[in-house]
């Protein structure tokens, strides 16, 4: 234990409640239109809500997960205007007019896309909690780098933690897809 002096103030309920919640801001309801996986959703949201919250709580699209709610873990990763973002740290109102893609949009009906199939085939999932984020990170990567190296893939998913340690299989799954090696 290192001593860095009195830290009691730091500890007042502040760190024990969710810092990312704008609890001191007044509640203001706004109607916004979100474009998610190609569909438009017109909804009333609390202007303080994050995109992740609105997806999960208002729209009941719970495929996007939360692991920290403050940009630490990457579990909430989705694609906005072609780039991966942490949806826990973007307000829903900021996402208006943007093109949002989530895990729910990957499969067409019950047909999984090649990346999803490759994840299953390579056992690139354990508890599965990070997997929506991993899939979105890999999707974004494969759009800009069609033939990634192993290093590119590692970099591409480095913003998402997987505590189960499925990384080697995730990397393999992404490489398989980029090389057209999925036959499920």
């Amino acid at each position: 234990m290192t001593s860095i002096g009195e830290l009691r103030l730091h500890m007042e309920p502040k760190t024990l409640v969710d810092e990312n919640r704008h609890q001191n801001q007044p509640r203001r309801v706004r109607r916004i239109v979100l474009s998610i996986n190609g569909d438009s959703h017109s909804i009333e949201v609390d202007a303080r809500s994050t995109l992740a919250e609105v997806l999960r709580e208002n729209l009941r699209m719970t495929g996007t997960k939360l692991g920290c709610n403050r940009s630490e873990c990457g579990t909430c990763t989705l694609i906005m205007d072609g780039r991966t973002v942490f949806s826990c740290t973007i307000l829903a109102v900021e996402a208006e007019g943007k093109c949002i893609e989530t895990i729910e949009g990957l499969a067409s009906g019950s047909d999984l896309n090649p990346l999803q199939k490759a994840f299953i085939k390579n056992d690139a999932l354990q508890c599965g909690y990070c997997i929506p984020a991993m899939l979105m990170a890999a999707t974004a990567l494969l759009r800009v780098k069609m033939e990634p190296t192993e290093d590119d893939v590692r970099q591409g998913i480095a913003g998402v933690y997987c505590r189960c340690g499925a990384y080697p299989n995730i990397v393999r799954a992404v490489l398989d897809v980029s090389r057209g090696q999925v036959d499920c």
């Binding site: 719970t62 996007t64 895990i103 299953i120 999932l125 599965g128 909690y129």
Partner: peptide
């Protein structure tokens, strides 16, 4: 392949917080 793979890659696997 694990039998719950489809749910886990399609975001339909339901965790308590969902």
């Amino acid at each position: 392949s694990r039998i719950d793979g489809v749910e886990k890659v399609s975001g339909t696997a339901e965790y308590a917080g969902d």
